[in-house]
Design a protein around this nucleic acid. Sequence first.
DNA 1: TTTAAAATGAAAATCACTTTCAATAAGGAT
DNA 2: ATCCTTATTGAAAGTGATTTTCATTTTAAA
Lengths: 144, 144
Amino acid sequence: MISALSNQWLQALQADGCRITRSRKVIVDLLLNSDRALGPIEIYDLARKEYPALGLVTVYRTLEKLEAMGLIQRVHLPDGCHRYLRSTQGHEHLLLCTQCGKVVTFSGDDFSKLSDRVSQNTGFLIQEHWLQLFGVCPDCRKHL
Amino acid sequence: MISALSNQWLQALQADGCRITRSRKVIVDLLLNSDRALGPIEIYDLARKEYPALGLVTVYRTLEKLEAMGLIQRVHLPDGCHRYLRSTQGHEHLLLCTQCGKVVTFSGDDFSKLSDRVSQNTGFLIQEHWLQLFGVCPDCRKHL
DNA sequence: TTTAAAATGAAAATCACTTTCAATAAGGAT
DNA sequence: ATCCTTATTGAAAGTGATTTTCATTTTAAA
Ligand SMILES: [Mn+2]
Ligand SMILES: [Mn+2]
Ligand SMILES: [Zn+2]
Ligand SMILES: [Zn+2]
């Protein structure tokens, strides 16, 4: 399944001097159609169903490239810190299902007041924040 | 340097069925007196200055035990997710210096409104949140 | 002391990830 | 369509962190 977005990513790769290969198509496609963060081995196993000749090294190399281009982002989870997800747009954060891993994004957090206060109290110059919410998605709530 | 807190931790270990050993004393002491999160190898190297016979395996085993007991917590950073820090008390979060790694805690964040809104919008049951601030500590600001 | 169980470190094993390299495939030029 | 340069590939070897195994040592309770 090659979507419009998929072509967009492949063209972005090409514009960056890369060639469009079957390996990359399969990996890009998986990442674009997943609603949860995937790790290298996971991607490797899933992708080989579509393209058995794929090598694990190529998965690592493709993830590295896609991350460098800002198309995907690394996600930290309690049980693994090398999962990848398509990048969020602008100032968005993640909400993850602790049961099935499903990810949705949200925005509208406002840390300005907190940030100012903490800066006052600590003398730190505050640069950025990491925020992630964890919970149970609608589907998993049914089976809870 | 064996502080009161250090004895408290060692007694907690003992109460849990563990024995108090020189290895554990040294490791506990390092963790209690550090103002930044330490990784296993880092702890190993620092601890051997005090106790050269210490084995790396023992560092891993001790960290595992201390984390299981809730005395230390794992910290995620952009460049490594296996650093450990004494656990925060109650509802506290971390503010980390991106230059030297120094950690301070803060509290007083209020996610109730955000949490309610996101829950409404997504149908997720929200359970917990990860929040970390990054910045430059007072000392490092001087040399910036 | 004695003794049973816990803890230890060396060494080997495992695991995720990276590097190397010779062969292959992509795609621009012709 | 065919060449030709260069990027990409997978296999295999290498690396570094973490875990397992096991014979020996240490702890602390009796
Ligand atoms: Mn934010
Ligand atoms: Mn992490
Ligand atoms: Zn779910
Ligand atoms: Zn600093």
